[in-house]
Design a protein around this nucleic acid. Structure first.
Lengths: 202, 202
DNA sequence: GAAATAAAATGACCATAGTCATTTATGACC
DNA sequence: GGTCATAAATGACTATGGTCATTTTATTTC
């Protein structure tokens, strides 16, 4: 608890001014000194908070992640299919926002690199959380399937990736969500729901 | 065709010496000057071939890609399921090799970034090529399914991602392939083959 | 409230990524 | 084989990322 607030404040300052400058001139063109000048601190201080300039980008990713976690547990009460749809929707929105920030900020190559990193990490989290959600729906009896939880979450994650990949350049959120809904319906009717029917017959 | 060979030679030289040095000391610790000294060329020359130091890593990714393309069309004669299994196997081997190189070469954070980039790009290619393979199997009648090609390739790609993600740290190739085979069998029997049976009955 | 301790900020300093005007090598054409 | 045009190589130079020994600021203890 030692001087925690001061530290937090300084870090937040750096992040805030950095993002603002990145939006104006792009990541590459902004020097560390510009950032620290904007904050009214010495250059060296920056490196007490971020080991390398690049790490401030990873920090952005981390903030994004925290939002992701929130989304994944936001719809705990709803039916499984609804939960999934709501999560898809929120994720697309979040993703679009993040991608827009990166587009403003970064030059093509590094942007792709960072975004891949984010997506990759998100995919892991998403799939894991989806697994937990499915498992709990199975446990409380609201959802049944002969499919292993891992397989279902893998397929559902696949749908999301598929859509994110295909629509990555011009981010039309509505279109993406529509496509996801279609895909989900097909999968749901074709496999998951069908499996439920089978299970009921037994 | 103008002096192409000379250019190719210089570039190949740079790449070769760079990789060798990266393996010895790691990407970060190797300076551009070291690389050019090893090649017996001037520092400036490096930047005639790679706009930034970092781009030499992306070049590695590109080489890797070329191998991927080759793999994806290597088993054109075989049955669809065999093709997929063979491709899975080769991809895991290729992936392990690449991941090992990166592990030797790069420090954790940037490595993850670059690897994500590679995986992401590969996934797109893989899924697209898989689509083409499935489509052609459908066309020549050796494979039938009520499922849309996109859906199948999405699911099959999902399996691969799933395995790559879960086994990414300790790369046990045999284990990864075994898992993939199991998953493929379940999916194949459960969905794809079943659909074929239905189609045959009609 | 002075001394002791530890956290945080500082900025002079260095190493090197990347630039660019100039030079050198290569081949084409007569 | 001399002239011209273009590709490729050069290396002095600059800007900036990153280090680190030192100083300043905050907190605790008596």
């Amino acid at each position: 608890m030692y001087r925690e607030n001061r530290k937090k404040q300084t870090k937040a300052d750096i992040v805030q001014h950095a993002i603002s400058l990145f939006k104006q001139k792009g990541y590459e063109k902004v020097t560390v000194e510009e950032i620290t000048n904007a904050c009214g601190i010495a250059k060296g201080t920056f490196f007490n908070y971020f080991p390398k300039k690049e790490y401030i980008l990873l920090h952005l990713t981390d903030s994004y992640m925290e939002l992701l976690d929130h989304i994944l547990h936001k719809y705990d009460g709803a039916s499984l299919k609804d939960q999934i749809l709501f999560i898809y929707r929120d994720l697309i929105t979040l993703y679009a926002k993040y991608a827009d920030l990166l587009r403003l900020t970064l030059e093509e190559t590094i942007r792709f690199s960072i975004r891949s990193h984010t997506e990759q990490t998100n995919i892991m989290r998403f799939q894991k959380s989806l697994g937990a959600i499915i498992e709990s729906a199975k446990n409380n009896g609201s959802f049944q399937s002969q499919w292993k939880t891992d397989q279902i979450s893998s397929i559902l994650t696949g749908l999301l990736i598929n859509v994110l990949i295909h629509y990555s350049s011009p981010l039309d959120k509505a279109q993406m969500l529509e496509e996801l809904k279609n895909q989900l319906n097909i999968v749901w009717e074709g496999i998951i729901h069908e499996s439920m029917e089978e299970n009921r017959k037994k």
